[in-house]
Simulated assay, not measured.
Amino acid sequence: MAEFELDERLARDSVSLTKLGLCDLRLSRDSRWPWLILVPQRPGLTELFEMTPLDQAMLTFEQTLVASALKKATGADKINIAAIGNIVRQVHVHVVARFEADANWPGPIWGFGQSVAYEDDRQREFTTSFLEALNT
């Protein structure tokens, strides 16, 4: 059986926060939005329907858990969840906190402006706040 390998673009554009039961939970390096990415640790998957029914259920559970914690940690107006994968074909799910005052509201985050990297303190602060919300 093939071993799981993270797509190089996901590795470059995000940092791992923790491992859940199925997914590597990653933080996007773009600080314009609180933006998390769930990557099921299964080799060779490009479509959600390729996952086993158990993994599909686990992914649904984990994305709901992450979305709830993100809402709690940020007080967002809306949580967006998407699995698009046109460029990065490895199965992954975006969970993004949106605010009515954020860049490009209510439009999509993709293809808008330039990425803004986190300052170390801000990334640490967000990570601590989010992980506390996830673990409560």
Rank of each mutant, 00 (worst) to 15 (best):
M1P: 07
E3W: 01
E5A: 13
D7A: 10
D13M: 03
S14N: 05
V15E: 10
K19T: 11
L20S: 13
L22Q: 04
C23R: 01
C23Q: 04
L25K: 11
R26T: 02
W33T: 03
I37Y: 02
I37D: 00
L38I: 11
P43C: 12
T46R: 11
E47K: 13
L48A: 10
L48M: 09
F49C: 08
F49I: 09
F49E: 09
F49G: 04
T52R: 12
L54V: 15
L54W: 09
L54E: 15
Q56V: 03
Q56T: 07
T60I: 09
F61I: 03
E62I: 00
T64E: 04
V66Y: 00
V66L: 01
A67K: 00
A69M: 04
K72Y: 06
K72V: 10
D77T: 03
K78R: 15
K78F: 13
N80E: 02
I81D: 02
A83E: 13
G85M: 04
N86E: 15
V91T: 07
V93E: 01
V95Y: 01
V96W: 01
A101W: 12
N104E: 14
W105F: 13
P106C: 10
P108V: 13
I109M: 09
G113H: 11
Q114A: 14
S115R: 15
V116P: 06
Y118I: 04
D120Q: 15
D120Y: 07
R122H: 14
Q123Y: 07
Q123T: 06
R124S: 12
R124F: 05
F130E: 00
F130Q: 01
A133G: 15
L134P: 00
N135C: 05
T136G: 08
T136H: 08
T136V: 01
